[in-house]
Amino acid sequence: MNELDQYKIAKEPFYQPQKDEIEMYTAAYMNRMPVMLKGPTGCGKSRFVEYMAYKLDKPLITVACNEDMSASDLVGRFLLDKEGTIWKDGPLAMAARYGGICYLDEVVEARQDTTVVIHPLTDYRRTLPLDKKGELIEAHPDFQLVISYNPGYQNLMKDLKQSTKQRFCGFNFQYPDEKTEAHIISKESGVDPKIALKLVQIAQRARNLVGHGLDEGISTRLCIYAGQLIANKVNEKSACKIAMVNPITDDLDIVDTLNAAIDTFFD
């Protein structure tokens, strides 16, 4: 277990449950069921996994997926040292061998031929063949696989195969309702709850524009950034502009509209 100790979450992360997701996840983990988290960016998927890993007291290995990632980036590869070659486990193999939660963030970013390596781990077999090394890892009883993806911005070229999708149970995440979101923002950033509520209302204006000029709305994460700036005595309007408007769009008309929304909520 020592190998994974560094991956343990030391301090309890703040997580505000929206519904019964904590109970549902705990039940899924009891059965070591692979879990898929779906939802827009910055709505709390990664934080949720962290929180659950802490609650269940299991190490969490996170992999940020990208297009250039190959199967060996997950499974492992041979390295060279002065005696010859040595095998180095990849994050997936490590989690399977020593028992941890392996979290593949934004899994659609990885190519489809990469994602299939998780197949034997995610059904009744729970094994990971390392064909280059000639070893078959039997997954540790604590091992669980979690993936996240964002159905919003994926284009037609990037999607999970049905055969991959149908190995997971799915959790849908949305931005929380107004009050909950304001509570989260105020708790995370230390900003006054009233200001947090205004930040949420501004974010909702942008979320109304999704599909009408915006690909994604202002996320909870960006609201928290704005809140943190305001808590540090930055002027409210400027904080909103740099944290919530400038990052999400280059379209001047939308920037203008969102600035008008900010002016509506802040004096």
Binding site: R205, N208, L209, I254, L258, A260, A261
Partner: peptide
């Protein structure tokens, strides 16, 4: 016009 259209959509959805 485009700005106004965005403005109305942002507020009234």
């Amino acid at each position: 016009q485009r700005k106004l259209q965005f403005y109305l959509r942002a507020f009234y959805n």
